[in-house]
């Protein structure tokens, strides 16, 4: 239960808004913190807190790309291939990442470490190729990347998980 796990965070979220319903997005991030996706039970709990129908909460999860309702790799590696990045070789970059990781876009490495995703502009077009890594409720940017640097990063992440 979120209410038992994060009482202080939840209180702070509610204090931010004059209307309860506004809390839905921060609460969904909270629900995503633990396992990187939002479980049915959490959606129900949030719906109850906000006096909404659970289908309304699910519709919000479905609307925004950064909320996930299915488990994926520990790290979601999200490569931008929008026009400005593509002009600087992002499509090729993504293609060779696929080869190096041995997976296709949308798939997860067999060890459950990386899910590779293709996303729209991340606001870093001048530093393409780039990707962000979404992990639980946080995001980090990795810019001016090469395939070699990316694979080194993957190895480093693999080590932190295994130790």
């Amino acid at each position: 239960m979120l209410a038992e796990k994060y009482p202080r965070e939840i209180q702070a979220i509610f204090a931010k808004y004059p209307v309860k319903r506004s809390a839905v997005m921060p609460l969904l991030y909270l629900a995503q913190r633990e396992e990187g996706y939002i479980k049915k039970e959490s959606m129900q709990e949030i719906a109850d807190m906000l006096e909404l129908d659970v289908t309304e909460v699910a519709a919000i999860v479905g609307f925004y790309t950064m909320y996930h309702d299915e488990k994926a790799g520990k790290y979601r590696m999200q490569v931008c291939t929008d026009l400005p990045c593509a002009l600087r070789g992002a499509d090729l970059f993504l293609e060779s990442l696929c080869e190096n990781l041995g997976i296709r876009v949308g798939e997860t490495t067999p060890d459950g470490l990386i899910t590779l995703e293709e996303v729209k502009c991340l606001g870093g077009c001048h530093r393409a190729p780039l990707f962000q890594i979404q992990e639980s409720d946080t995001v980090t940017f990795h810019e001016n990347m090469t395939v070699e640097k990316t694979m080194e990063l993957v190895e480093a992440l693999r080590k932190t998980v295994n130790t």
Binding site: K16, M25, P26, Y29, T65, V119
Partner: peptide
């Protein structure tokens, strides 16, 4: 106060 979006242009 800040409010964080979640990926939608």
């Amino acid at each position: 106060k800040t409010h964080l979006g979640a990926g939608a242009y």
